[in-house]
Amino acid sequence: MTTHAPLAIEATGLEKSFGATRAVAGVDLAVPEGAIYGVLGPNGAGKTTVIRMLATLIAPDAGSARVMGHDIHADGDAVRGLVSLTGQLASVDEELTGRENLVLLGRLLGLSRRAAKARSQELLEAFEIAEASGRLVKHYSGGMRRRLDIAASIVVTPRVMFLDEPTTGLDPRSRNQVWEIARALVAGGTTILLCTQYLEEADQLADGIAVIDRGRVIAEGTPGQLKASVGAGALHVRLLDPGRRPEAAAVLGRAVGAVELEPDPAALTVSCSDAERAATGVAELARAGVGIAEFSLGQPSLDEVFLALTGHMAESDHTLEEQAS
């Protein structure tokens, strides 16, 4: 990581305790401008607390941070002028309509009444909630509600956006929409700090990832680097005839590397990170006349990364930081 791009977020030694619970125990972050940076970890790992500190909602017990060069402690007002929050923690008003929510935020951010109305209309159309704009938000579907949440966060386009678990509880279609919006935001020059417990989400969106567990950053890098740190990928082969597996194992052992037999009697896995060698292996099998049903070359999943880094699975121990705050 030798990027010299200016940093949008720079945090050193952030700490925060709630009573006896150490929610954040010394977090450093360096997020370059214009990136999507993922903070990945299970529930209760301290992600939300980190965001709340960076957005000046709560003060850290120790450590410091700068957002777009402004100190969160000394210059909180300037920070608030550049960031916006979306997701689990900053919500829209359920007892107002979608349109009223957007006009309200526009007015609070300094737009004239007319400009606030025009901007709301523009956002309602872009996010395709115009039809529901006159309904109270409490009657919105989950996906519509989340789109409104995001629209509310860009009434004035922020320089830095905190997305806290933006797709939790959404169906796959709505989730893809939210991802599209995040990509569009970054294309427009916004920096996004994305907190998520979904490894796939970080993999899909983030340029860089910090893995956080029990209030500490335990690994950092690009999705590719994190996967590489866990080890090589693997060639998975499934045969047409399970009876020919011993033969296939011998061929692949010679051409590629160490073979592992899978529980499925027709399948075997060869440890391999080089696509060309994998292709050679598959070609050798074909030459030997062993019928192949399917094959794939896979990288380790971020789930495996998480397991390797923490020694436990990503399915959280439920120490809910939200309760402590």
Partner: peptide
């Protein structure tokens, strides 16, 4: 669908 990327 549901969010027009160009408009966004």
């Amino acid at each position: 669908g549901g969010a027009d990327t160009a408009a966004v």
